[in-house]
């Protein structure tokens, strides 16, 4: 069995399973263990409050509209995330891979220029956001090693992916796939879990505010 076959077969299955199993396990621990307490008689709707915060926090807080950092985080953040999601789910090689290994995605892949462009947005966002961690005293203080590893690993995965764009070399393809697998294994144990926790975080806050008849 060549290394590539290994990466496409057993190692892929193993890393994908670790990802699914531990992400689910982490979410279950987060959502179903520990202290829960009775809540006060509501003054407003916790449900609507949750909905409002889950949606509302997609936009920066109105008080920060004149704040350069908020603009930076918002623009770079969306640039990175949207770029990443588009290339993850709509780029031809990924669509092909997902169809082969996971599900038959119902959509057609985007043209190549769209793939490249979304990768460029993703890179521009990721690079600026990551470098800021070193030069903004606030963010440097609060950044954990995990935040750097998560950013770095994601960057390397993307970089090897774009290096394999020529699709002429099994080695580059294998390198990319191998790093993806590493990334998948790291994911559930890291701050990358914010991919899944954000609606709960916002939702709990929103429900609390909704119950109290206020907004958050």
């Amino acid at each position: 069995m060549t290394l590539l076959e290994l990466l496409e077969g057993p190692l892929w299955i193993a890393s994908a399973s670790i990802f699914v199993a531990f992400a689910a396990f982490r979410l279950i621990v987060i959502l179903f263990t520990g202290r829960r307490e009775a809540e006060a008689r509501p003054a407003g709707s916790p449900f609507l409050g949750a909905l409002r915060t889950i949606l509302g926090h997609f936009l920066p807080w109105r008080r920060l509209l004149g704040n350069g950092k908020a603009w930076f985080v918002t623009i770079a953040g969306y640039s990175f995330h949207i770029g990443l999601f588009v290339l993850l789910l709509f780029a031809a090689p990924h669509v092909e891979f997902i169809r082969e290994k996971i599900v038959n995605l119902p959509w057609d892949p985007i043209p190549r220029w769209g793939f490249i462009l979304s990768a460029q947005f993703a890179f521009a966002g990721l690079i600026t956001l990551w470098l800021r961690r070193f030069v903004d005293p606030v963010v440097r203080l609060i950044s954990r090693p995990d935040d750097h590893v998560a950013a770095g690993l994601t960057f390397i995965v993307m970089l090897t992916g774009c290096m394999a764009l020529g699709e002429q070399s099994a080695f580059l393809r294998g390198l990319h796939l191998g790093l993806v697998e590493l990334w998948l294994i790291y994911f559930p144990f890291s701050s990358l879990m914010h991919t899944f926790t954000w609606p709960f975080s916002r939702g709990f806050t929103g429900a609390m505010a909704g119950r109290r008849g206020t907004r958050a």
Partner: peptide, 10 residues
């Protein structure tokens, strides 16, 4: 190894 499949559409 036939190499990666041609997914570039070209």
């Amino acid at each position: 190894d036939p190499g990666p499949p041609n997914t570039l559409g070209k």
